[in-house]
Design a protein around this nucleic acid. Structure first.
Length: 428
RNA sequence: CGGGGCGUAGCGCAGCCCGGUAGCGCGCCUGCUUUGGGAGCAGGAUGUCGUAGGUUCAAAUCCUAUCGCCCCGACCA
């Protein structure tokens, strides 16, 4: 993509509304535009990151045997009456009426709807277990939205729902998701700590929140220091993770905590995922029953599994930035490479940079080519701000010797080499 | 929902107390110079001063109402 054709409204000055780093950087880097309190327009750069995150989630969910569906954002209030949540969910739920005076709502979550969808066709134990998920916009009318996309009113969420014949099956589904979540967050370059949690309005017995450690986080949690030295590539890591202690502060009782104080750490965390087991809480009132092998009709056993997709964009930035801007982990970066031609006045350098761009494109590398007439300093500052993992700088040596300068955004290291070597290095 | 703050050019702000018809920086446009870390000079464009009433000869400024946004708290993924 040529920058001259790309809509990237970066800003030099810090928007006054932004309090935390990720919010400030997302506005400065031209990723989002605030349309209302807690409601954002995603601009091209931000949307690319959102899509990267969605893709990782899709891949891992599919690999875990789940199937994607897409439910509507607007739901009938009638359904929520059956589950009893129409009133209990409270003012966070946005309700309105259509022209026929029928009450509708903008879905804050989808347990009711998915249960109905499921029970339309699934009647036998032979058809389960199943795990259906979607990535869809939700609306929760927060009292006070804040921190940009980290606590918006409208937000993109992956919500999955498992259906099993009995508790044993449901437990298996639960732990499969637990493991899948660790993989998903790891692929995004994050270390997520699964903490025991309250199940809140969703309800249920077994519940874990997945927290990213960050000072800007809104949750307070306690965890065993051993979490910090976990090797997530170790195949046995699951046993280890499950054994370790971690809890949100409401669930943490210093009296009964099994971990001695010197092995316990306290931190702020950003909740990026939450999984629940809730049995027949929704299947019973909504009549979702299946036949067992012995011919009995039983309420299906359910769990639900959320990931804050749009929140993750903010959370990843909170975990990866410096004074110059964002430092995207490779798997979620909007582009892998940014090309800066530092000699826009030199036709040979322009031709060289054009060629570099074409070759990277041919090699299938996602590239943003700053082909504008800005001065080098402005281009460098802009590249650092938007935080692409690699910067390719075309300067005097490119024209003379065919050597390009490569800057790694994450640690600032630079190397000089030819383009082919760089492409090979990317492929490795 | 309680407490506080702010709405003036695309962004950041001054002007308001003490009414006299709007300004600064960045950005944007033109020209010349410049060209490896957000350039310099010269010229230029851009405003229903959030909205609606009111007071006044005259309102960005004073009064009333209203809408929006932000911060702290409580609440929440």
């Amino acid at each position: 993509m040529r920058l001259s054709h790309f809509y990237l409204p970066t800003q030099k000055e810090t928007p006054s509304d932004a309090q935390i780093a990720s919010h400030r950087l997302m506005l400065k880097a031209g990723m989002v535009y605030q349309s209302s309190a807690g409601i954002y327009t995603w601009l091209p750069l931000g949307l690319r990151v959102l899509r990267k995150i969605e893709n990782i989630i899709n891949e891992e969910m599919d690999a875990a045997g789940c199937q994607e569906v897409l439910m509507p954002t607007i739901q009938s209030a009638e359904l929520w009456q059956k589950s009893g949540r129409l009133d209990s969910y409270g003012k966070e739920m946005l309700k309105f009426k259509d022209r026929h005076d029928r009450e509708l709502l903008y879905g804050p979550t989808n347990e009711e709807l998915i249960t109905e969808v499921f029970s339309q066709h699934i009647k036998s134990y032979r058809d389960i277990p199943k795990n259906l998920y979607q990535i869809q916009w939700k609306f929760r009318d927060e009292i006070r939205p804040r921190f940009g996309v980290m606590r918006g009113r409208e937000f993109l969420m992956k919500d999955a729902y498992s259906f099993d014949i009995d508790y044993e099956g449901a437990k298996k589904s639960y732990w499969r998701m637990y493991q899948t979540y660790l993989k998903i967050f790891k692929r995004m370059g994050l270390t997520a700590i699964p903490v025991r949690a309250d199940s809140g309005a969703i309800g249920g017995d077994m519940s874990h929140e997945f927290q990213i450690l960050a000072p800007a986080g809104e949750s307070s949690l306690y965890y065993e220091v051993a979490f910090e030295s976990l090797d997530f590539d170790d195949p046995n890591v699951m046993d280890e993770v499950v054994r370790l202690y971690a809890a949100v502060d409401e669930k943490h009782d210093p009296q009964s905590c099994p971990v001695p104080p010197h092995q316990l750490k306290q931190s702020k965390g950003i909740e990026v995922g939450h999984i629940f087991y809730f049995g027949s809480k929704y299947s019973e009132p909504l009549g979702a029953k299946v036949m067992t092998p012995s011919g009995q009709l039983v309420n299906v056993e359910m769990g639900s599994y959320g990931i804050g997709v749009s929140r993750l964009v903010g959370a990843i930035i909170e975990a990866n930035f410096d004074g110059e801007g964002i430092k995207w982990p490779d798997p979620v970066a909007p582009f892998q490479v940014g090309i800066v031609n530092a000699k826009t006045h030199d036709p040979k350098a322009v031709a060289f940079a054009d060629a570099v761009y074409e070759k990277l494109k041919e090699a299938g590398v996602e590239t943003l080519y700053d082909d504008t007439d800005e001065r080098p300093g402005a281009k460098f500052a802009n590249m650092d701000l938007i935080g692409l993992p690699w910067q390719v700088i075309v300067g005097a040596k490119a024209v003379e010797k065919g050597i390009i300068e490569i800057k790694r955004r994450s640690d600032g290291t630079r190397q000089e080499l030819d383009l082919t070597s760089f492409i090979n290095q990317l492929a490795a």
